[in-house]
Every structure is written in C-alpha cells, then in structure tokens.
Design a protein around this nucleic acid. Structure first.
Length: 486
RNA sequence: GGCUCUAUCGUCUAACGGUUAGGACGCAAGCUUCUCAAGCUUGAAAUUCGGGUUCGAUUCCCGGUAGAGUCACCA
C-alpha cells in the first residue's frame, strides 16, 4: 500500500442519539467507513445531540456498541477524542455561536420576529392556496437585534438555481424554491442540524459527506450556507434507502426496522451481517459475494453504489450467516453453541462430556445460533443425551402392520452391531456392517426402525452417524429397548 | 400539491450501443445410502410503457406510468 496524505479523505458518521440504531444507519456508517479505509482516510464519529426533546438515554452508548460489534472503528470520536474535540455537538455550542456571529455581522442572519403560531398560520395559508410555503417571502424588512430568545434565521444571500455533483447520483440540480431562510439556532439556544453539521464539517475538515438520500432536497440550502460562509463545500454522496421487506417504504423504526443488536442476540455473526449489508446497494465489478473486510476496503467504491433503494431480505442474510458459520473454527463455534444452548439441555447430566460430539450436527443445521433453540423445540437435541421416548408404532417403516418383521430386523441389527469392536464403532464401519442386510430387506424397512430406535423422532441424521455418536453401549441398549417395546 | 430522485428475474444485482440479457438468494426437479440436514446437477424466472436518435438500444434523449424522498424551532 502506498502512503497517502491522510487528509485526502476525511469522513464522518454523525448519528443522533434519539433511539436504537437500525440497519439503515449502520449501512451508512459502513459505507463511509469503507470509503475512509479505501482511501487511507480518517473516519470520525460525531454525536449530533442538539434535539434535547427527542434524545433517548443510553442511545449514545448503544450506537457505540453496535459499531463495535460490527467491527467499525473510528479514528476520532466522543470516547477517544481527537484534534477537533469535543465530538458531541451539545459540547460545541460556543463554536456554533461564533459562526452565527459571523453571519449576523455579514447581515446574513436575523432574529425571527414571528411566534411559532404565526409562522404556522402563514404555512397553512400557503397550503390552502396550493402554494409552496417559503418563509423568506415573509422576511421582515428590518431586523431586531438577536437576543437568543428568538430563533436565529439564515438570510439566503442569493436566490438562484443550484447544480452540484453527487458521487452516487451524479449531476443534480434544484430550483430557487429549494432555498429558504431556515433556522440556524432554535429558541432553546441549540443549533439546528442544518446549521451545526455544516459548522462541524468545516471545522473537522470533512472532505466527503456521506449520508442518506433524504438529504438531497436539503443540499441547495447547505450550498447557500457554504456560500454565505465563503467556504468551499465538501463532496456529497447520498445513499439510497434500505426498503422494508414488505412495501416500498424506506426502512425506519416505524416500519419494523430492527435494532441492530437484535441480530447479534439472534446469533448472527458480525462478519456475515456486514457482508450482507455491504451488498445491499453496492456491488463489485465481478460476481464475487463473500468478502473479508480487508477485501472490501480495497474494492469498495461509491460510484458503484445503486441509485434505487434495496429491499431488506432476511433469507439472503441467513444464507450469508450460514456460510460464515461453516467457516468458523471449531473452538469459536463451540463458544457460540455454549452461549445459545438452552438451559434445559445444558442441565442434563452428561451434557458436558457429550456436547462436543454433536457439534458437527448442529453446524450443518443452523443458519443462526438462535436456531439451536428451535432444534431443541423440535426434539432434535435431547435424544443425544437421554433415551428418547416414542410410540412403538413409529418404529415401523411405512407399513404399520409389519410388526414381526420390524422386530426381526432390529434383532438382526443388534446382532450385527454387537460384533463390531468397541474401538471400531464409527459410522463407516457401522454402515459397512449393516449395509448388506439393509439392502436385502428393502433398506427403509431396516434403517428406519434402527434410526427411530436411536432418535425417537421422524427427522434426524442417518442411523450410522447416530450410532457412532451415541457409542456402542448406548446404541445397543436403545435398540434392545425398542425390541422390548414391540 | 411544489420541488427532487428512481425504474433489469419474486429479491439483491451484472452487462462503459452489438451478449443465447450473466451471477447470487429464494423456488422446483433430479442425484447422493431410510427420514432430515448438508452437498452436487438441472430448470422456471427480468430489461415499466410509448416515441425518438442509431445499421443496431437494457444502455442515449423526450414523454407517459408507477414508486420513493422532501417541503419542521427533527436529524
């Protein structure tokens, strides 16, 4: 890797602590982070907590937790500081005041003389007249001195068309109706997003502003503010929305978007989750689908981000998770099994000595670790540790009346298995020993009763595997029990 | 309603004007030692519509249609 000037790319992820972080937020963070990594740039985490009414306790900690889970690390942020500290907006109020003062002195910010109600009435009137409401059409002719008790509004310097380039959407433009005298500082003394994010982006040297598509229509406002401040705007990149799995609406908290940590709790692997997420709206130039973070950091590009929204797809996420589970080391896999195994199974007396043997069975049958619970509920775990209970009729393959033959077959299987040496009691030897007899008698007639005697359920691994996992002693004993039951 | 954006299999997407429109998930069928699971093979499945430009449009332009975003003292 060639050494690049670190200041080529400085990006930020700037969530507001107003609730849990959902997948839409996370993907924005992921794309910004990958863009920074790809360019050897700096990734900044900034907390935008200027809406004190909507702020949710613990939300900030939750955001950090999600990012850490998925493996997104930041170079500067509220917890670790950095050259532009602090990284929480409520602690940067003086900086915003300074910029507000600059605008006031330029005559480009003024105290809003109206009450909230008066503005609302003007808005309603415009609506009734089927006109777009523009505050600037009601801009007072003379401005009172701003005393911090009224909102401070931006005075759009020039009403004109704006054209700009977006790394994802290409050339964009908007007419003058996109421009208005928006509020810079609210009457509670806190700045609005529209104002302070721009101040911070300037102060922190942000080069690329990567955020959701919903900001496209606001960008002309930002452009006019950059002009008023005489600052060159950064490069913009807006990201398409993630759509809910039903409907076409942007995935939001109200439409059932889940807290990212729920995926962790359900047993999704962060690597799989990240891999799925990166492909939801972005695609490399070839057909490769499984990526390490390092590979993504090399090939990620904003110009290959889609313009249309991508629908959330749990099935594909599950497929990715399964793939990644298969790649997990035995040790790591066992740790997850230990975490997700239901207490009812863990409390069985011989759980600890036997659990390692059934690891491969679990590994090929789950998509996420929470599925272990479902396996348990379907009775697919318990019989490995305890003798199964079942109705003797179930031992019969297809023909429930063939009692005598079933008994005969089980007795012969018992005989055959008994002859296998203890230290040779593996699935291959067992199959070799049983196979001829089974084939001669229609396979299912013989193998189904054997498997059922060992598992006590309709669906399980094949009888050779089961016998080898249970061991010779337990296998013989379970078959004897079945014979007695008939 | 104004402004803005978007449109390829059910879903995620590939195809810098020329391909039998490719891949993946899901689905179906078959194979693989009974039932599962896993694996393998095969299959069905798409360029929103109408005009143009061009020898030739999924691709470029215009229009229709559909969908989305936004129009806060929220971010």
């Amino acid at each position: 890797m060639s050494q690049k000037n670190n200041n080529n790319v400085v990006v930020r992820f700037a969530p507001s602590p107003t609730g849990f972080m959902h997948v839409g937020n996370l993907r924005t963070a992921l794309y910004a982070w990958l863009w920074a990594k790809k360019n050897n740039g700096i990734f900044i985490l900034r907390i935008e907590d200027t809406d004190k009414e909507r702020e949710v306790a613990g939300a900030k900690e939750h955001i950090l937790k999600v990012l850490k889970w998925i493996g997104i690390n930041w170079d500067e942020g509220p917890d670790i500081g950095g050259p532009h500290s602090p990284y929480t907006q409520s602690e940067r109020l003086d900086i915003y005041k300074k910029y507000a003062q600059i605008l006031i002195e330029k005559g480009l910010a003024y105290a809003d003389p109206y009450t909230e109600e008066e503005v609302e009435n003007l808005r309603k009137k415009a609506e009734e007249e089927k006109k777009a409401f523009l505050y600037r059409e009601h801009r007072p002719e003379k401005f009172d001195k701003w005393d911090s008790t009224k909102p401070l509004r931006f005075k759009v310097p020039v009403i004109k068309n704006y054209k700009w380039n977006d790394l994802v959407y290409g050339d964009l433009s908007a007419g003058p109706e996109a421009l208005d005298d928006f509020i810079l500082i609210k009457s509670d003394g806190y700045p609005t997003y529209n104002f302070c994010h721009i101040v911070d982006d300037i102060e922190m040297g942000i080069t690329h502003v990567i955020r959701g598509q919903e900001y496209i229509s606001s960008i002309p406002k930002y452009l006019s503010l950059y002009e008023a401040l005489d600052v060159k705007p950064p490069i913009f990149a807006c990201l398409p929305h993630i759509l809910g799995s039903d409907g076409n609406k942007k995935l939001g908290k109200r439409d059932g978007a889940k807290d990212c940590l729920e995926y962790k709790d359900e047993g999704y692997l962060p690597e799989a989750f990240l891999n799925f997420l990166v492909l939801l709206g972005w695609h490399p130039s070839d057909d490769k689908e499984i990526f390490t973070v390092e590979e993504l950091a090399n090939i990620f590009s904003l110009d290959r981000v889609q313009k249309a929204g991508a629908r959330w797809n749990d099935e594909k996420l599950n497929w990715f998770n399964k793939k990644y589970i298969q790649m997990l080391s035995d040790k790591k896999f066992s740790e997850f099994v230990d975490e997700f195994m239901p207490a009812e199974i863990k409390n069985l007396t011989n759980y600890n000595e036997k659990v390692e043997r059934i690891i491969p069975i679990i590994k090929e049958r789950i998509e996420k670790f929470e599925d272990i619970k479902d396996m348990h509920e379907r009775g697919e775990l318990k019989y490995f540790f305890e003798r199964p209970e079942y109705n003797s009729k179930s031992l019969m393959w297809k023909d429930e009346k063939d009692i005598q033959n079933t008994k005969k077959y089980l007795e012969e299987i018992l005989n055959i298995l008994n002859k296998i040496q203890d230290n040779d009691f593996n699935s291959v030897s067992i199959k070799d020993a049983v196979w001829n007899f089974a084939t001669e008698n229609g396979k299912g007639n013989v193998l189904w009763p054997m498997r059922y005697a060992l598992s006590g359920i309709d669906k399980s691994p094949d009888p050779f595997i089961l016998a080898s996992l249970l061991g010779k002693k337990d296998t013989l004993s379970r078959i004897e029990t079945a014979i007695k039951k008939i």
